Lab assay of single mutants.
Amino acid sequence: DEIHIHFNGVTIEFRGLTEEAKKALEEAIKRGASEEELKELARRLIK
């Protein structure tokens, strides 16, 4: 299970995320999180 985020022309790929983690990332994107914020969020979620 993986998710691809297209962000300002950059694709960020995450693997092994739970549904909750995906929802958290989607919410962050909707509120306009920066690419760095998304990566940091993903790091926290994957652990």
Rank of each mutant, 00 (worst) to 15 (best):
D1H: 14
E2T: 15
E2Y: 14
E2I: 15
I3T: 08
I3D: 06
I3K: 03
I3R: 05
I3E: 05
H4Q: 05
H4V: 09
H4T: 08
H4N: 03
H4A: 03
H4L: 08
H4M: 06
I5V: 08
I5E: 01
I5C: 08
H6W: 07
H6A: 05
H6N: 08
H6E: 08
H6G: 03
H6M: 07
F7Y: 08
F7D: 01
F7H: 03
N8F: 06
N8Q: 10
N8P: 04
N8L: 07
G9F: 02
G9L: 01
V10G: 07
V10I: 12
V10A: 06
T11S: 06
T11Q: 06
T11W: 12
T11L: 12
T11F: 09
I12Y: 07
I12E: 02
I12H: 03
E13N: 05
E13M: 13
E13Y: 15
E13D: 07
E13T: 15
E13A: 11
F14V: 08
R15S: 12
R15Y: 14
G16V: 04
G16I: 04
G16Q: 09
L17H: 01
L17A: 05
L17V: 06
L17R: 01
T18V: 04
T18W: 08
T18L: 03
E20W: 14
E20H: 08
E20C: 07
E20I: 08
A21F: 09
A21Q: 08
K22E: 04
K22I: 13
K22P: 01
K23W: 14
K23N: 10
K23S: 09
K23L: 12
K23C: 05
K23Y: 14
A24F: 11
A24G: 05
A24W: 08
A24C: 07
A24E: 14
A24L: 14
A24V: 14
A24I: 14
A24N: 04
E26M: 13
E26K: 10
E26Y: 15
E27A: 11
E27K: 07
I29G: 02
I29V: 08
K30V: 12
R31D: 12
G32E: 03
G32R: 02
G32P: 02
G32S: 03
A33H: 03
S34D: 08
E35N: 05
E35S: 09
E35A: 14
E36W: 12
E37F: 08
E37L: 04
E37P: 00
L38T: 01
L38W: 07
L38H: 00
L38D: 00
K39A: 10
K39L: 15
K39E: 05
K39Y: 15
E40T: 09
E40W: 13
E40N: 07
E40M: 10
L41W: 05
A42S: 03
A42N: 01
A42Y: 15
A42R: 02
A42I: 15
A42V: 14
R43W: 14
R44M: 12
R44H: 07
R44N: 05
L45F: 14
L45E: 00
L45A: 02
I46M: 14
I46H: 06
I46L: 14
I46Q: 06
K47Y: 15
K47E: 15
K47V: 15
K47G: 15
K47F: 15
K47A: 15
K47D: 15
K47C: 08
